[in-house]
């Protein structure tokens, strides 16, 4: 029987992998997004910033910023799932290359005005095949049960590297 890996090694591998994905995409930094990880579960966080405002009178988050937040949450979830599979197999590369899916379409449903405060999102991969994936993302602010926006999108999965099975 294999000895379980020390928790410190596991955490550093997983946090390192997530950090590499986030750092690779300049636009994630532009939005100021961060990700919270519990095991393989990710929560995307959009800390409030004045630059995200779309209606200064209310004020409310910009619908486009909300759409972008949900889209990034979906893409990072898919890239993370690909990386998880590659790095968590026994004897696997602990630092596999970043592979980003491409958005084919995204449909955003605005349920209530985005308030000038932090927003959170969680993506659920409903189907992930060799070529296509379908993802649903829920966005909320103060109350997990009161979504302010949700989105569904299709994504083109990255080509597998040569030599992969």
């Amino acid at each position: 029987m294999r000895r379980p890996e020390p928790v410190r090694i596991i955490k550093s591998r997983r946090d390192g992998a997530l950090d590499r994905i986030v750092a690779a995409v300049p636009y994630i930094g532009f939005l100021g997004m961060r990700f919270d990880r519990r095991g393989d579960e990710l929560t995307a966080i959009l800390p409030f910033d004045e630059r995200l405002i779309g209606n200064p009178m209310l004020p409310a988050l910009h619908g486009g910023a909300t759409a972008a937040f949900l889209e990034v949450a979906a893409i990072v979830e898919l890239a993370w799932a690909l990386m998880w599979d590659e790095m968590e197999r026994p004897g696997a590369d602990p630092s596999p290359p970043i592979r980003l899916p491409k958005t084919i379409d995204l449909s955003v449903d605005y349920l209530r005005s985005g308030l000038p405060r932090d927003a959170y999102a969680r993506a659920r991969v409903n189907r992930s095949g060799r070529r296509f994936a379908s993802v649903h993302v829920e966005g909320w602010q103060d109350n997990r049960q009161r979504l302010f926006a949700q989105a569904t999108g299709h994504f083109l999965m990255p080509e597998r590297a040569a030599g992969d099975d």
Binding site: H62, G64, A65, A67, A68, E71, V72
Partner: peptide, 14 residues
């Protein structure tokens, strides 16, 4: 990023 294109198109729609 597609998100920036979405934000552009949403603004233009509004």
């Amino acid at each position: 990023h597609g998100g920036a294109v979405s934000a552009l198109m949403d603004t233009c729609g509004g």
